[in-house]
Nucleic acid binder design. Sequence first.
DNA 1: GCGCGTATGTTCTCCAGCGCACAGAGGTGC
DNA 2: GCACCTCTGTGCGCTGGAGAACATACGCGC
Lengths: 250, 250
Amino acid sequence: MPARQPAPVNQLLAALPDAEGERLREHLRAVALNSGEILCEPGETIRHIYFPDDSLVALLAPVDGHPALGVALVGKDGMVGLACALGVGDSHMRALVQGSGSALRIDAAAFRRTLQRSPCLHAALQRYADSLMAQIAQTAACNRFHLVEARLARWLLMTRDRIGPDRLHLTHAFLGHMLGVRREGVTQSAQALKQRGLIDYRRGTVVIVDGRGLEAAACSCYAQLGKLQFSSTPARPSPGRAPGNAGNAP
Amino acid sequence: MPARQPAPVNQLLAALPDAEGERLREHLRAVALNSGEILCEPGETIRHIYFPDDSLVALLAPVDGHPALGVALVGKDGMVGLACALGVGDSHMRALVQGSGSALRIDAAAFRRTLQRSPCLHAALQRYADSLMAQIAQTAACNRFHLVEARLARWLLMTRDRIGPDRLHLTHAFLGHMLGVRREGVTQSAQALKQRGLIDYRRGTVVIVDGRGLEAAACSCYAQLGKLQFSSTPARPSPGRAPGNAGNAP
DNA sequence: GCGCGTATGTTCTCCAGCGCACAGAGGTGC
DNA sequence: GCACCTCTGTGCGCTGGAGAACATACGCGC
């Protein structure tokens, strides 16, 4: 079947009025992001802003000894380098490509200049900042209270929601880093989900078999965030709020 | 001894130029906040914005069964109701008063109107949003990796940094809610810190005896955030970055 | 179709923190 | 000074996940 046909385009950009969109697009350039690539390190000055299309970027919080913990996912619903939009030059987090794909990139300086003349973009990014904060806060609580299995299910669903297809390219070790647990813990939880027929996997690929079932296995944080995430960045400037899961029909 | 003498005033407001400050102050009204009071519930529309002076507000992330987890502290360095400043009407978090004291309050609608004519305030709030996000992300990682004792030390230090005096009014049970652990766990960790002469406590009051020692007992997240927190909202527009612990001399 | 690197499976011990139940010990109000 | 309530101390057994050390299995490249 032909994947990636619906031309997944970044929702923040898609929602812009023509004039602003045009102005921004002059500086945007399509780039390919490869899984494992690091776009930004904590403490580093932000040089580029990324608007993912079908790529997926994880935001990681650094901790002394440990490998950094995944606190948020940025896909076509968001952007990487938000701090720059908020007037802060340095990033506080590591931005790591979790899913290969394309994104639109813009130089930080050009972005800042353009942003000053783009009230709609500015407003959208502020709303996005709010939703990202909610996502991070929820993740904080989730990491504290929920078991690995539920958190794994949540992360898989969040990944799928942002890239589209049910086939994800992820290893257990990678997921372990995101969730802040050992690789073995991921393997065990994944096995449990597999045995229940919710997912399948094999050497670096995870397939979501039963999305509804996986949602049931995930912690309540998933439903909680689903609501927030999509209502804050509606693709169309229509009045009503979009329902939680749009475009994820089997 | 006369506490609260140095007239602690909210730093976000103090940094405003006269014109903007004046305009905002017309709508601000001093209110007393009492420990345990809830200023905002998740999902609720934000009605008032608070700029704490010597009061202290904790932001909590809600989770299904559990009591909500503390993800950030807002004192004289910040504001409660940030979502409103970002153009979002509803809060995603619970705002719970952790330390009694005074704050300046403004009606959400009036705040929004004033904000449109206050570029400096607007810029400051965007930077604050960024720093708050960093704080929440760090807390997420901290909760995942660090032991209760270190996290307790961090929370106490963060509390002190925002209210000034070394005497904090907190029960073990309350701290347990903030840290997402049992009250007994707090008791044990607090005992350990007490035996090492770092803190003392007794029936709802914690005293920081050895601040430097407590910093050593806290996890690296404290130092990490100290840098971020205070550099992003400097009280004076002087060039250099403020060092981590300013104004906490005994 | 062979070999090697990477991904996954398995087992064991250890421990921080949970849940529960109850025992003091300060304060407050009458 | 008595009753009462809230805060703190302590002792269980239990378990999710950490750490570590392997065994297997898949698949790419040559």
